[in-house]
């Protein structure tokens, strides 16, 4: 890997950690995942086409490494609960309180989505990839991507409503209790 690519990889580490956190729902596991993915990327750098997006390529490696890890756990332990039960957000109470309850609720709602829907939401809604880029990254057809996205969004909207009672957090964010004075 040439020095410039390495620097780019270092520069996108914060986003790789964010994506990995979305997948694993656990800060320590997320960092392990990113480290594994970086090590893989370096040994497989010949598989990356220069000129294409490095971030998308890394997202794909992270995603496949994560799936391999889950499958491995299933085989070894015969249960997926290890990961499922560690769905607690990796944020401490103080920060959560400061960072507004709304964002916390959104994270919790996303953590509650099935794995494959969560990956789609992280790529499209959080990372801002286009549908086409996200489908290529996850190596799934466009139709599969859009149907996962629709299911995820409707589930999120419903969960947000449930968490916030009748007064939905989304409404609150769209039109906060603020009035223009100037």
């Amino acid at each position: 890997m040439d020095a410039r690519t390495q620097q780019e990889l270092v520069a996108i580490l914060p986003r790789l950690r964010r994506f990995a956190l979305g997948l694993t729902r656990n800060g320590a596991q997320a960092d392990d995942l990113v480290q594994n993915a970086c090590e893989k990327a370096i040994t497989r750098i010949d598989q990356w086409e220069p000129g294409t997006r490095l971030d998308s390529w890394m997202f794909r490696i992270i995603q496949t490494t994560h799936i391999d890890h889950i499958r491995g756990q299933k085989r070894r332990d015969g249960y997926l609960e290890v990961i499922e039960s560690q769905g607690e957000p990796a944020f401490d109470g103080e920060r959560a309180a400061e960072a507004s309850m709304t964002l916390d609720a959104v994270r919790r709602a996303i953590y509650n989505l099935p794995d494959e829907q969560r990956a789609v939401v992280m790529l499209v809604s959080v990372e801002g990839l286009s549908y086409k880029e996200a489908a290529e990254t996850l190596e799934i057809p466009m139709g599969t991507l859009t149907s996962r996205l629709v299911r995820a969004r409707t589930a999120l909207a419903r969960m947000m409503n449930e968490m916030n009672g009748s007064d939905s957090a989304a409404d609150e964010a769209a039109s906060p209790t603020l009035k223009e004075v100037q």
Partner: peptide, 10 residues
């Protein structure tokens, strides 16, 4: 609103 919140949630 949901998209805007999701964008910054992490």
């Amino acid at each position: 609103a949901l998209a805007a919140l999701t964008r910054v949630a992490f």
